[in-house]
Simulated assay, not measured.
Amino acid sequence: MSESMAVRCPDCGREHLYAAPAYPCACGTPVAPSLNLGAAPTAVTHRTWDEDWVTVRCGSCGREDQWPHPELGCACGTVLRVPVAGALRTLRPRDPHGADPSVRPRTAFQPVTIRTARDAVTAVALYLRWLGYRDVRRADQRQPSGIGLAARGVLAQVDPSVRPASLRDVECLWLTAMTESTDCVYFSLAGYANDARDRADGLGVSLFVLDLTGTPQPVNGAATELVATGSGEA
């Protein structure tokens, strides 16, 4: 279990007991940022990638990944960014048999409920890490729609809009990925137009649909194969 701390809202004065959520590393070990018990929370008034994510090292395999910065929603409507300590902590599993925890089969994906576009990006970033991709970050190049994520060996598009992804959306992602000599994956909340799915099959673009539970579902052969094999980077 991660540690708990009292968090007081600076706007209304309410006090909450908060524990940072733990997320599974690709090796299966749960990791969580260490909270700064002596610092006060701050209200989130605007968002940047650097402030929304924090780097945590897995104590079992040594892998470093970026995870969502701890946040808490107060009943008054204020979103609080909970301070983290400079030294980040890993939750080590206890193995009574003394087995090496650094070599494990991939565990079940733990989804994040999608309520906002940021939640969709968080869910996809976690899913990419679950597939084995390293160093997930914002993509350098912007796409015509949605939000781009990049990692070693892959370019991903997150489309949280209410319209199905179009043929142009899929082709733009594929063309950008070709210029970077990398694979590409598309995640859409509203699904895909028929011609977009046909084109993705021809280009080898993996297509996933996001449901509101935050669980990506493969909708073509390339995506199904990716789920089965993982990235090969872990």
Rank of each mutant, 00 (worst) to 15 (best):
M1H: 12
E3Y: 12
Q143Y: 01
E3T: 15
A193K: 06
R115K: 13
A117Y: 05
P10W: 09
A87V: 15
T55K: 03
S2D: 13
H16M: 13
V124F: 07
Q66P: 00
A234S: 07
G232S: 04
P10C: 15
T78R: 10
G230S: 02
G73D: 13
R106H: 06
P216S: 00
D201V: 01
G204R: 01
V31G: 05
D100K: 10
T45F: 11
F187M: 09
C27N: 04
V112H: 11
R168I: 12
V205Y: 00
V7E: 10
A228D: 02
R199K: 08
D169T: 08
D159Q: 13
P96D: 13
L149F: 02
A85V: 13
Y18Q: 09
P218S: 03
D52A: 15
P111A: 10
T113G: 11
A108L: 07
Q110A: 08
S188L: 09
R118P: 11
R104Q: 15
F109W: 05
D50N: 10
A6E: 15
G153A: 00
T176N: 06
E171G: 01
N36W: 12
V79D: 06
V56S: 02
L226D: 00
V103G: 05
C74I: 04
L173S: 04
G148F: 05
P93F: 08
N194I: 13
P68C: 04
V170Q: 07
H16T: 13
